[in-house]
Design a protein around this nucleic acid. Structure first.
Lengths: 227, 227
DNA sequence: ATCATAAGCTTACGGCGTAAGGAAGAACGA
DNA sequence: TCGTTCTTCCTTACGCCGTAAGCTTATGAT
């Protein structure tokens, strides 16, 4: 027997908030957020459900903690790049994180107070605009516009009933067959002449919109400076 | 006694899908989507929970039906306005609907197949771009960019822990007191010198971003035409 | 009047979040 | 080293949830 009985007699180490959050994230990724119950999470940690409440005050606190933890995965805007490059990279990173954890976006509109990871992230984004020559008011505009686009895109992307190019093609041809061309002529056109064309991939739309917004923000900054 | 017993012996008229959906929407608005259970909805209709299943195949079908019904509240882009005006009006309308029914945005990323109201709406938006001189490929870009912004903005707006100007001011001063200025200097600056200023209202950011995107789309259309 | 079909109800099952309180273990002063 | 105290973990239980199965009642066609 080891002295002081430092290790657990059976199975895993002591629980702590970090292990709870990380396991919850893993389970949500693997089995979907709707399958993540306190009992299931306890099971995944070799513990009873009620034991989790020593590390998390309730399920809402758990979900908020998961979200805040995710901001640790996002690449912060670099100090070395110019503002546009830096924010482009971090926007791409946000989208990647939301693709990796598709349940996250839907949990972020809860209106709860942000955790430290979230605050840190937002602070760095604001700082990147400020140091890129944006006035305070223009920074507020730009922050809102850019993140609206990025999170909105991730949401749209997830709402699509297909992921890959092949799935899109399959889905599109099914829809084409069902949906009356006379009633929805423009949807029909888009499906037949665009989505069903080889090489189509909705994921490519992200870059277009991102550059659209970033370039427009640069123009708005310069206009505000001149005016 | 009326002939043929056309009316119900007690209480309300016969159930049908439309009444179920409209009552569900009203309850979700009034009490929050998390309080909307089949039993509660049945109660609101003077009916047992299981009776609802004659009109709705399960809860997911109910929620999808609610979403599709909401598209009926959105002002479709007018044929009389130019494309930018038409889409600006319908974007403002989308935001208003999502403000009126704050639970809706979070239900829209389910990846389920769209209902007739949704299809009709999308078709009209696509048509507005096409008739505004956008190529098919550019229409796909524009549709994605615009709706990503609009729905993303609604999401951000809802995620904010305040609604009115007064609430924002109250929240901001609380945050200012708690959040260390040394750790989050730019957040601190934004709060102190912008959010806390009289007249600040996050709702105003919507127009800025919307015009930013619409103007940028116009430029992109013209560039593509010229190139 | 008959009878099929649809609408609504009753009951029940397994799962959920979590309140209350007991048991076991760790931490610490004596 | 031994109590004492605080924390962690477990057991039990409650009132919710969505919905399957099978019943009764109302409707509407013949």
């Amino acid at each position: 027997m080891p002295a002081k009985s430092v290790q657990r007699t059976e199975g895993r180490a002591r629980l702590n908030r970090e292990r709870v959050l990380q396991t919850a994230i893993r389970l949500a990724d693997e089995e979907g957020i709707e399958k993540l119950s306190m009992r299931r999470l306890g099971e995944g940690l070799g513990v009873e459900a009620m034991s989790l409440y020593n590390h998390v005050s309730n399920k809402e606190d758990l979900l908020n903690g998961m979200i805040d933890s995710l901001y640790g995965e996002v690449e912060l805007p670099s100090h070395d790049d110019d503002w546009k490059t830096a924010l482009r990279k971090r926007s791409v990173s946000v989208r990647e994180v939301l693709l990796r954890h598709p349940w996250a976006n839907g949990l972020m509109d809860s209106g709860t107070s942000p955790g430290p990871g979230t605050l840190r992230h937002h602070d760095r984004v604001l700082g990147t605009f400020r140091n890129g020559g944006f006035s305070l008011a223009m920074t507020a505009h730009a922050f809102s516009a850019l993140d609206s686009y990025v999170y909105g895109y991730a949401k749209q992307e997830k709402a699509l009933p297909f992921d890959t190019e092949e799935q899109a093609a399959a889905m599109a041809s099914v829809m084409l067959a069902q949906l009356p061309a006379s009633e929805y002529p423009y949807l029909y056109e888009l499906m037949a002449k665009h989505v069903l064309q080889p090489g189509y991939n909705y994921a490519d739309e992200f870059s277009f919109g991102l550059d659209l917004v970033l370039d427009a923000l640069e123009r708005a900054r310069d206009l505000a400076r001149a005016g």
